[in-house]
């Protein structure tokens, strides 16, 4: 037996329908106007802004700042406020639960009341969700990129392309990607000098007798490009910006010695990269207390931005500071 409110709802609908107009042309007219306006805006954006195409995907580029499509940005941003151990809950379980509730909504919220003022809880919940989404998206759009933007040396980029074109990775690997027939090149830039590379690329056997590496027959400028790329392979945390040395001077040098220059209050950091990884250094600069409760070093979270701390960490990890 149908509940009486359902019968009344259906009857009221029939009443309103009798009072209403036909789909054609009245509703079609409104639809056409709205569709036309949307099409004009989409076409305008397509012509004026177009669809951007960034550089070709490079799986070895660890300095790229991933950014999701804008409608995922709120989730991306929300995850920044969640501790790592709860990431699965925030990233997967919570959204799945929300979607499930959305699907089940008509079976949870039953009964005759439809007007938003007659369903205050759901109305408020809806407004909170919309405000939260917009707020997180805006904060996400404005938040600084984690990886410092590094100016890319065209010579290095050309060398990187040569490395790919010559299929060097069939035999050599960088950061665990590539073959094992030849030596691992992940940190080769910190082990070899420029001249060694130049001679090596002219004739591998001259500097490494018995090497099975083929001669590459490169043009002199191609050798320079490939060497420039090899010299960036220093291990460490990735390239740092020219600002990094100044950051060190301004914030660290009064207490810490680096490459023979600086204060004596804190430990010498010259060889830090040989025994600490980036996660440690980054966390320590942000706030040293959890690592070392006795320390008199201040935390720099708040003083420095996250990208600056990242930049400093990379600088400390780099083996090629002194050569710059």
């Amino acid at each position: 037996m149908m509940e009486s409110w359902k019968e009344r709802a259906l009857a009221r609908y029939q009443e309103l329908k009798k009072l209403g107009k036909s789909f054609f042309p009245y509703i079609i007219y409104k639809d056409t106007v709205v569709v036309f306006l949307i099409f004009v805006v989409v076409l305008g954006l397509a012509i004026v802004k177009g669809a951007e195409l960034e550089e070709v995907a490079d799986p070895t580029d660890t300095t790229y700042n991933p950014r999701p499509e804008w409608y995922f940005l709120f989730l991306f941003q929300a995850l920044k406020y969640v501790p790592g151990s709860l990431e699965a809950v925030a990233a997967i379980i919570l959204p799945s639960l929300v979607i499930l509730l959305m699907i089940l909504l008509p079976f949870i919220d039953r009964g005759p009341r439809r007007h938003p003022f007659d369903r205050p809880l759901l109305t408020i919940l809806g407004i909170v969700a919309i405000v939260g989404f917009i707020g997180l998206t805006v904060v996400g759009l404005e938040s600084p990129l984690l990886n410092p933007v590094v100016h890319k040396d065209p010579q290095v980029m050309a060398g990187r392309k040569l490395y790919a074109d010559l299929k060097c990775s069939y035999c050599h690997s960088i950061n665990g990607r590539g073959g094992v027939a030849g030596p691992d090149l992940t940190t080769v830039g910190s082990r070899r000098e420029r001249d060694w590379f130049v001679q090596h690329f002219q004739s591998p056997q001259r500097v490494t007798p018995g090497s099975v590496m083929p001669r590459l027959n490169l043009l002199p400028e191609e050798v320079d490009e490939l060497v420039a790329y090899m010299m960036t392979l220093g291990g460490g945390g990735g390239p740092f910006t020219p600002k990094a040395p100044h950051l060190f001077q301004d914030h660290c040098e009064s207490c810490h010695r680096l490459d023979g220059k600086g204060g004596e209050i804190g430990p010498d950091l010259t060889t830090l990269r040989t025994y600490r990884d980036k996660g440690f250094i980054y966390g320590y600069i942000q706030d040293p207390k959890p690592f070392n409760p006795e320390t008199s070093m201040p935390g720099f979270k708040g003083t420095l931005t996250d990208p600056e701390i990242e930049d400093l960490s990379r600088y400390l990890l780099s083996s090629k500071r002194e050569k710059k």
Binding site: Y13, L16, K18, L19, G20, S22, K30, D31, V35, F39
Partner: peptide, 26 residues
Amino acid sequence: LFDRKIPKGVGWIYALGSASLFLLIL
């Protein structure tokens, strides 16, 4: 499809469904 009556009070905001259909076709 075309002569069906639409209840009284259906306004502009109801066009969002048709707009979605248009974007699907686009």
